[in-house]
């Protein structure tokens, strides 16, 4: 095979994905950049021009509150994800029991479910006439349904439910390949199991932990389905704000500006991750 032939074959294989990439990623991205600096039109669409107006709207009270609140909710959800997910990953990595593989499968399983199905199953369980309330009422533990949906609690629980597998897997992977002998060496040098955890195990699982945070923080911040279905009217988040700018409020430039900020944060945090862990062999993003 001649090199020329080889090269044309190379581009031949690459053309469809490149085309796909161009049409569905690069072009929309460029459009968003352009839109975010344009003037809005009354019924959607944009008038070409150059203005920072859309960016400045973000600082208006209503929107800025949403912005901050989204951050707080996302941070809370992420912290809870870490607190709940880390022990599970730890158990999966270090348990000698054979059941752990079953648990691992059970954790991976929801990843194959459609997002909406997950949300509706959540509603089925926690809704006013949901499984849980009916069960508790049947046992006469309560006499009227608990308000388990459409509040902060259900919003954050919903995020946990969605996020945990994405967090547990990279952390599990980094703990699983931690050499048992480091732990033994630490114990041998007089460190208690707790000291060994904080000085040896935790530091070495930081790349996995960070990957898990990247995998959960960003999608949570931009998520609009979970707040929509589980968060109720009071817990409007950044994702909802963006969707509503495009679908209801018809302020495409503002929606685009919000998207730009979100995209910027994604790029920023991923590049931060790659900068610190990108060239180590513990880099988790390269494995998923």
């Amino acid at each position: 095979m001649t090199p020329r032939n080889n090269r044309s074959e190379f581009w031949g294989y690459l053309a469809p994905p490149l085309f796909w990439f161009l049409i569905f990623l690069v072009v929309p991205l460029i459009l968003i950049v352009i839109y975010s600096f344009s003037y809005k039109e009354l019924y959607g669409g944009v008038t070409p021009g150059f203005t920072f107006e859309s960016y400045s709207i973000i600082f208006r009270d209503v929107y800025f509150t949403i912005f901050i609140k989204s951050f707080l909710i996302t941070t809370a959800a992420t912290i809870l994800t870490i607190l709940l997910g880390y022990p599970v990953a730890y158990y999966l990595a270090f348990s000698k029991s054979k059941i752990r593989y079953l648990f691992l499968v059970l954790i991976v399983l929801p990843l194959w479910l459609n997002f909406l199905i997950k949300i509706f199953s959540f509603i089925t369980i926690f809704g006013e006439n949901g499984v849980l309330n009916q069960f508790l009422m049947a046992l006469s533990i309560i006499d009227k349904p608990l308000p388990l949906l459409n509040n902060l609690w259900s919003l954050i629980t919903g995020f946990l439910y969605i996020n945990l597998p994405f967090f547990i897997l990279p952390v599990f992977a980094s703990l699983d390949k931690l050499d048992q002998r480091y732990i033994e060496a630490s114990l041998d040098l007089g460190a208690t199991p707790v000291q060994t955890f904080f000085r040896i195990i935790l530091p070495q699982s930081v790349p996995g932990l960070m990957a898990g945070v990247v995998f959960t923080f960003i999608p949570t911040l931009s998520n609009f389905l979970v707040p929509e279905f589980l968060g109720g009217v009071n817990n409007y988040m950044l994702g909802n704000l963006i969707t509503s700018q495009f679908l209801q409020a018809r302020n495409w430039p503002f929606g685009s500006a919000l998207s730009m900020i979100l995209i910027f944060m994604v790029v920023f945090s991923v590049s931060l991750y790659l900068r610190y862990y990108g060239n180590t062999k513990n880099n988790m993003l390269s494995e998923f």
Binding site: Y182, E184, L189
Partner: peptide, 16 residues
């Protein structure tokens, strides 16, 4: 192990 007053040098070193 952490309460024993002896130390082990591992076959594979196991440096942190």
């Amino acid at each position: 192990p952490y309460k024993r007053n002896l130390n082990l040098v591992f076959q594979s070193y196991a440096l942190f």
